[in-house]
């Protein structure tokens, strides 16, 4: 309750701040949406601000759904949405800026090196509940899954053709970071997170490893080559009919062009995402 209310206060405050700044010299741009995309967009925003000056960009998370809702309500000019738009969302326009893959992670103490899609389905539906079945230790499996409404969960379910009601998870997490910590702290755990975030944590020395999906190694390279099956587009989303006379709409358009330019590529790679080809 208190969290929801403070969220409400934050949104109201930002809207009010936004109103106040309309007349000022500084142009403001607010982005909301996917927590996967937020760190990347924060970096892009800083680069854009430095290049342009007199522009201030704020990035807030809240999930792809929030990005879409906020753009529709006109609260923000750009939403961050880490999936493709569906048929019901034809009032919105997607601008692809990068690709992200979802990888399955295990603790490095776990001897299992690969799982077939069917085995993963069995684990996540509770049909297989011991690592012994897959050549591991005689230990129960701790299944880590994402909370409902998150696009990572949606993509995971869509790829493995699972209805959400069939999932039998022991730990339900919010963001990638929490999932990585859950697997790093538990040798019996299996989870799925953004490959970029997983690679970053592996480099930081956390005891987790990515396993292949359908025989394809999970890495930013295989996502970039388009081979990795469990991947998703990272989109910036705007309304198709942006109202004329909106102060920041040109800034928004400039920012999207910047995010798709060559200058952005290095920043995208540095966040372990994959810039679109061509």
């Amino acid at each position: 309750m208190s969290r929801a209310f403070s969220l409400f206060l934050v949104v109201i405050t930002l809207v009010l701040v936004g109103c106040n700044q309309r007349g000022a010299d500084t142009e403001r741009l607010l982005l909301t949406g996917s927590s996967t995309m937020a760190p990347l967009l924060t970096e892009l925003a800083i680069a854009f601000e430095n290049q342009r000056g007199q522009t201030r960009i704020d990035v807030q998370t809240g999930g792809s759904s929030r990005g879409i809702t906020d753009v529709r309500r006109g609260l923000v000019d750009i939403g961050m949405v880490s999936r493709s738009l569906n048929d019901k969302e034809d009032d919105l326009q997607a601008h692809l800026i990068a690709q992200d893959g979802i990888g399955l992670i295990l603790n490095t103490a776990n001897p299992v090196v690969s799982l077939t899609d069917q085995q993963i389905v069995n684990i996540y539906t509770g049909a297989a509940d011991n690592w012994q079945l897959f050549g591991g230790a005689n230990e129960p499996i701790t299944v880590v899954s994402k909370a409902e409404g998150r696009s990572t969960l949606d993509l995971f379910l869509a790829y493995f053709k699972l209805p959400v009601a069939d999932l039998r998870a022991h730990i339900i997490i919010g963001d990638n970071e929490q999932g990585i910590k859950a697997v790093a702290g538990n040798a019996k755990a299996i989870g799925y997170v953004s490959i970029g975030a997983a690679e970053y944590s592996i480099r930081a020395g956390l005891p987790i490893k990515l396993i292949p999906v359908n025989g394809v190694q999970a890495s930013t390279d295989s996502v970039s080559s388009g081979l990795f099956p469990l991947s998703r587009p990272l989109n910036l989303v705007t309304r198709v009919e942006a109202k004329p006379g909106q102060v920041s709409s040109t800034t928004a358009a400039d920012f999207i062009r910047f995010a798709q330019s060559d200058k952005a590529r290095a920043l995208i790679l540095r966040q372990y995402f994959v810039p679109p080809q061509g």
Binding site: L7, G63, S65, R66, A147, G149, R150, H170, I171, I172
Partner: peptide, 21 residues
């Protein structure tokens, strides 16, 4: 066994929820 509390339920899902949810 894992449990979810009312407050955790809100914190986990609110940011991502739409309409009836």
């Amino acid at each position: 066994e894992p449990v979810r509390t009312l407050s955790a339920n809100i914190a986990l899902e609110m940011a991502y929820a739409m309409e009836m949810h």
